[in-house]
């Protein structure tokens, strides 16, 4: 959050930000945007620059021509904003901490996997395992998410504007998954304490996952989640699902359910 004097570096590859000053120069500014073109510089250079930012840095970054590159903006731990102008490959914003990552395109497998905090917004569709094992933060997917959305989620909030595929929220431990469209087969299989809200049809529920009553506190948290995701769906139109908690301790009579 050094002193800022450098001009906007629009539409140039960020080879320039590899010298230490440039990264710091962009810090803290709400106007300056560091531009990184993945056709002329590597994802390694981008991530290294993002990781090298000083603590608390809130600079803005634009990534051009992502062309499905993997691991874009993975492992961030500064409150920066990264706009990705096109489709991202696997593990975009993986393990995110504090950062805001906007993907203006589709996202590959495991977008925001194991996110701890911050916000990742896919302005398109997401592939499998979106938000897998994530502990915190908010993942918003405007389009559809594929299979295993929110698999083993551990505290993250996920809002999907469209549908989610089969095995979504498998072994989901904590956090909330909101699906504004339909859910595929085996939703919430072997779920622990995560809460699921689905507006559309659920193809089938997984083992130990059941529909639950929508109490006022659930309507309130759903309203809040939809608002945070910038959506205007009617919370009253959703059904809540969660764990029946019958498989928490092994019992021989349940053997066929495992």
């Amino acid at each position: 959050m050094g002193a800022l004097s450098t001009p906007v570096i629009e539409d140039a590859p960020t080879s320039t930000i590899n010298d230490d000053d440039a990264g710091a120069a962009a810090a803290g500014s709400t106007v300056d945007v560091v531009v990184h073109d993945l056709r002329t510089a590597t994802v390694r250079e981008l991530n290294a620059a993002l990781h090298a930012l000083p603590e608390g840095d809130s600079s803005r970054w634009r990534v051009l021509n992502p062309d499905g590159t993997h691991s874009i903006a993975a492992g961030l731990d500064r409150p920066v904003t990264v706009e990705i102008e096109g489709p991202a490959g696997y593990y975009c914003a993986g393990m995110n901490q504090h950062a805001t990552v906007e993907i203006h395109g589709s996202a590959g497998v495991g977008v925001a996997e194991n996110m701890m905090s911050g916000r990742v917004h896919v302005h398109g569709d997401a592939s499998q395992s979106a938000g897998a094992t994530a502990h915190g933060g908010l993942l918003v997917i405007d389009g559809n998410a594929s299979a295993r959305c929110g698999i083993s989620m551990k505290g993250v909030d996920i809002v999907v504007g469209g549908n989610v595929g089969h095995m979504s929220a498998f072994m989901a431990q904590a956090g909330r998954l909101v699906v504004c469209g339909d859910a595929g087969d085996a939703l919430g299989d072997s779920i622990y304490e995560a809460r699921l809200y689905v507006k559309g049809r659920v193809a089938s529920l997984g083992a130990d996952c059941v529909a639950k009553e929508m109490r006022p506190e659930h309507l309130a948290e759903l309203t809040e989640l939809l608002r945070a995701a910038g959506r205007d769906d009617d919370p009253a139109a959703f059904t809540r699902y969660g764990s029946a908690r019958t498989l928490y301790n092994f019992h021989v009579d349940n053997a066929s359910a495992y």
Partner: peptide, 19 residues
């Protein structure tokens, strides 16, 4: 939960290295 098979594992290892 987020990869299956050796081709995916290569990408996963790439992510761990990047992070």
């Amino acid at each position: 939960p987020d990869w299956t098979g050796p081709d995916d594992l290569a990408i996963k290892i790439g992510e761990l290295r990047e992070i």
